[in-house]
Simulated assay, not measured.
Amino acid sequence: MSFTDWKTDTIANILPEEFYNLIEKNRDHIQKTFPVTLSYCPDLEKTKQFLAFNQDKENHKEGYFFYPRDNKTNALIGYLCIKSIDNRISKCELGYFVDEDYQGKGITSKMVSETLDFCFNTLNMNKVFICTSKINKASQQIALKHHFKQEGILREEFKNSDDTLEDVVYFGLLQSEYLLKKDKLTSGINQLKLYMGSAKMTSLSYKILFFGFYYYWLYKAIKFYFFTDNASGYLIFIYPLFILALTLFYLISVLLFFKKSSSKDSYYKLILLPHIIVPICTFFYVMEKYVL
């Protein structure tokens, strides 16, 4: 289940105490994936120094730091950093984790999406990469979800908290690939908006489409449960009337929408025709099969 009641905060608004609490709470959770951050935050005083160091890096545009915050509790629930910035070839790395209690709620994915927009459109990076340990399947899924390509495996590239050297999976995303995917997504959304009538299609029209499908599947369900060989004549008589009433209500809704639409909306009227036909066909099917 997704969690949407949160916002992204910047390092200027982060108190050492709340970041230390986040680290301390998730120490076991991130010890194998964020050992460097853990080593810099063993206590509150060291955490203050770590935040001050990162603030200085951001002031000099050598790194950027973002923190999701629960709007209700005001607690930090994650951490994302842009690091390893190489301005010579316009490349940077993303590192992130989310509070263990908030995993699987879409927070990391949303933050990565927003950060990619910042990297490619604001920082004008040519490439963003993610290095993740082979055991961190969740991080790998985030990379793949955002169209990163696995470029290789760096052998014994990373030392975890128990000083074990691990292989690292390297994912990369080019600015050209990101913009192409974004253009395709935007085009797809625009086509969907066109199909659904965009802003010209009133809230009533959405209800019309919904009710059209609703009536059809309601018919399928009732037919399955009631129209057996032993169905009583009473049910066979009542059900077509019920479908007829729903159909009339549906058609009246459509006519009201058409009446409010201008002549320029002929295209949007046209796409509604299949949804008008569904309940009508349903009615005649029932009449022919069970009544006539």
Rank of each mutant, 00 (worst) to 15 (best):
L80R: 01
N59I: 07
K182G: 02
F120S: 05
Y178T: 00
K83Y: 12
F129R: 04
I252L: 13
L248F: 13
F237I: 10
Y216S: 06
F50T: 02
E114T: 04
F257A: 15
I77L: 10
K289W: 00
P16H: 05
K110V: 09
I135M: 13
Y102S: 04
C131H: 11
L185Y: 09
E288N: 11
N160Y: 05
K32S: 12
W6E: 01
I238F: 14
I271F: 12
T247G: 06
T8W: 00
Q55K: 14
I222K: 01
N160A: 05
F97A: 03
T228E: 14
T33H: 00
A221C: 07
C41Q: 06
D101M: 02
H60Y: 10
I280Q: 06
K207I: 05
D56Q: 15
I236P: 00
L270Y: 14
V169L: 09
K145D: 06
C281L: 15
L15Y: 05
A138I: 11
C119R: 02
G233Y: 08
L76W: 03
Y234Q: 12
Y239H: 10
F129C: 08
I238T: 11
S176Y: 09
G233M: 11
K223L: 15
S232F: 06
L272E: 07
K223Y: 12
E151S: 12
F226T: 13
D117L: 11
D99F: 01
L44N: 04
K149G: 02
D5R: 08
L248Y: 11
D99L: 02
D229C: 03
V168A: 13
L185I: 12
S266I: 12
K220H: 09
F283A: 07
F50I: 00
S262T: 15
K72W: 00
